[in-house]
Amino acid sequence: MLKTSCIISGQDRRVVVDTHLLSPRGITQYKDFIYWTDLEKKSIERAHKLTGHNRTTIHQGHGEYVMDILVFQESRQPGWNPCGADNGNCSHLCLMHPGPPNQAGTFNMTFSCACPTHYTLASDNKTCLPPHAFLLFSQKGDISRLVPNNDHVPPSILPIHNLRNVKAIDYDVPDKFVYWIDGRSKTIKRAHENGTEVSLLLCIPHLSFMTI
């Protein structure tokens, strides 16, 4: 069953929904409704948060196992922060944090730019520079980058998705493209190391070579 608490102490608990719940998992609330996922029914449902009325199935999966759920709406996150304008002029990551205390003893919010793994922050404290030297290696479903002579930073898996059976890889330094052979689809593909501009270059039904 699904329950809700009317007061923050947890007292006065009420049963909201107690029928046709096979395997409820994630739950969230937005305005007058609660939303939940049901693993066995492969569904997302909602009902009124106090009465359980107006119960509606808003998604019924087809072979999909929905585990968790979260409602995103701008009205749930009112206000402003320094990273909200042009990402703080940071090339990659903008991290908001409290600044020095003011005369009233409160903290004004400020920000600093940061870089993803293997990148370094330039002297302007805004631009992230890629590594000058690195190794690329592939596993069956991943292509990873390793910076040599840096034992404190682990390898980083490149955000290139839907890799099934990587047989060989190559790298185009001027244009920063990663090339790979997919043994399952028998194709040669490429993408930037940040996962963008994925494209199919060649389809070979009787693929037999293992290098590019």
Rank of each mutant, 00 (worst) to 15 (best):
D68A: 14
R145A: 01
L135I: 15
L39F: 06
S112Q: 15
F107W: 10
C83E: 07
V66C: 07
R55A: 02
P101S: 10
K140V: 02
D142K: 14
E40W: 01
P155D: 08
V71Y: 01
H92V: 05
T37F: 02
H53V: 06
R76T: 09
G63I: 04
Q77T: 12
S43R: 03
M109K: 06
N54H: 12
D151A: 15
I34W: 01
C128E: 07
P148L: 13
D142E: 15
Y65Q: 10
W36Q: 07
D142R: 13
G105C: 04
T120K: 15
K41V: 00
T106A: 15
L95A: 11
H132W: 01
C113A: 12
E40S: 01
G79Q: 12
N108T: 14
C90V: 06
F137A: 11
R55K: 13
N150H: 08
F33Q: 04
N54Q: 06
E64H: 11
F107E: 07
S75V: 09
L146Y: 08
H59P: 11
I44V: 14
G88A: 04
T57L: 10
P130M: 00
C113S: 11
F134K: 06
F72Y: 15
Q60P: 00
N54K: 12
T37R: 05
N108I: 08
A133P: 01
G88H: 08
A104L: 12
F107Q: 03
L136K: 06
T120P: 00
D124V: 03
T57H: 05
L39Y: 04
T37G: 07
P131V: 14
D151I: 13
F107C: 09
G99P: 12
K42V: 02
Q77L: 14
G52H: 06
A133N: 11
G84L: 14
D124W: 00
M109V: 06
P131D: 01
E40A: 03
H152G: 00
V66F: 12
P131Q: 05
R46N: 03
L50I: 09
N150K: 12
V147S: 07
S123D: 11
H62S: 13
G52P: 07
N87A: 05
N149F: 08
V71G: 10
N125H: 01
N125Y: 00
R76C: 09
Y35R: 05
N81T: 06
C128L: 03
C115W: 04
A114P: 08
